[in-house]
C-alpha cells in the first residue's frame, strides 16, 4: 500500500491574515504558518490505513521554503517521506496551476511504484475553495471519492460515506483513487517525542518545476486564470447594545427583534 497525501502550509487562522498590497496575493510572511489543520485529518487517515496493513505514506506539498514545516509536522505524525515542490515561479499560482503541479509531482512519485490512494483534506483553511481534490482527480484520471467522513478499503476498492446537504451517500470506486476527507473522519494524533526525533532522519526531496517538466509560464500569478482586482478589509462590525439579564433579558431581546421587524 502506497499513499500520497497532499498537504498545504497556510497562514495561521488565529493570526491577522491579510494580502500583499503589491500583487493582491495572500501574505505568507507577516503571519506564522502551519500545516493546514484540515490536512491533519488526511495524514491521520493515511497513517491509519497503512498501520492496519502495511505500506508507506508520502507527503507532498507545494509552497515557499517554510512550507517544509508542513511536511515536517506530517513526518512527526508518522508519515514516511516527503516531497516539496519549491520554485520561485510558483508564487501566486491559482487552483488550476496548483493542481497541475501536484498532478505532475504525483506522476513522478508514481514512477517508483503506483500510489494506491491520493488523499487530501476537505479544503485549505486559507483559500477555502475546496476544488483542488476534484481538479486532481480530473487531471490524473482517477476516480473521485471526496468529502469522506468514513473510508473503507477492501479487495481493490475504496468505499466512503459522504454526508451531503440532502442525503448521506455511500460511494465506491476501484483503486487507485483520489480521496478527500472531512474533519469528521478521525481525531488526528499529536506527534510523540519519539515521532519528533524520528522525523529528523526521514527523507524529504525538493523538486523544482524543471524536475517535473512543467513550464514556468504555466504557473504563477501572471498565468492565473482569474485575476484579483482589489481587496478591502471589511470594516469591523459596530458593537451594538449589550444588556445584562436581570430577569428581563428575554423581553429585551424580543423588543430588539420587534424593532428590527423580525417579529
Amino acid at each position: 500500500m502506497k499513499i500520497v497525501v497532499c498537504v498545504k502550509y497556510v497562514p495561521d487562522a488565529q493570526g491577522e491574515r491579510t494580502f500583499n498590497a503589491s500583487d493582491n496575493t495572500t501574505d505568507r510572511t507577516g503571519v506564522d504558518g502551519l500545516l493546514s489543520e484540515l490536512d491533519e485529518y488526511a495524514v491521520e487517515e493515511a497513517l491509519k490505513i497503512v498501520e492496519a496493513s502495511e505500506g508507506e505514506v508520502v507527503v507532498l506539498t507545494m509552497g515557499p521554503e517554510d512550507a517544509e514545516q508542513a511536511i515536517r509536522k506530517s513526518l512527526q505524525m508518522g508519515a514516511h517521506s516527503g516531497v516539496h515542490i519549491l520554485d520561485d515561479a510558483l508564487h501566486g499560482s491559482d487552483a488550476p496551476a496548483t493542481s497541475l503541479v501536484l498532478a505532475k509531482a504525483i506522476e513522478k512519485i508514481n514512477a517508483d511504484g503506483q500510489a494506491d490512494l491520493v488523499i487530501t483534506g476537505m479544503a485549505s483553511t486559507d483559500g477555502t475553495m475546496s476544488v483542488v481534490p476534484a481538479m486532481l482527480a480530473e487531471r490524473l484520471g482517477l476516480p473521485q471519492v471526496t468529502m469522506a467522513s468514513e473510508v473503507k478499503l477492501e479487495d481493490g476498492s475504496v468505499t466512503i460515506r459522504r454526508d451531503g446537504d440532502v442525503s448521506t451517500e455511500t460511494i465506491t470506486a476501484p483503486v487507485p483513487a483520489l480521496v478527500s476527507v472531512t474533519d469528521q473522519i478521525n481525531e488526528p494524533r499529536y506527534p510523540s517525542f519519539k515521532g519528533i526525533m524520528a522525523a529528523k532522519k526521514k527523507p524529504v526531496q525538493t523538486w523544482s518545476l524543471a524536475d517535473l517538466g512543467v513550464d514556468a509560464g504555466e504557473v504563477g500569478l501572471d498565468a492565473a486564470w482569474t485575476k484579483v482586482d482589489s481587496f478591502a478589509q471589511r470594516p469591523p462590525r459596530q458593537q451594538g447594545e449589550i444588556v445584562t439579564d436581570e430577569g428581563d433579558g428575554g423581553q429585551k431581546l424580543v423588543e430588539f427583534l420587534v424593532s428590527r421587524k423580525f417579529v
Binding site: I242, V243, T244
Partner: peptide, 8 residues
C-alpha cells in the same frame, strides 16, 4: 464583538 444586540 460582532453583535447588533447581546444579552449577557
Amino acid at each position: 464583538e460582532l453583535v447588533d444586540f447581546g444579552v449577557v
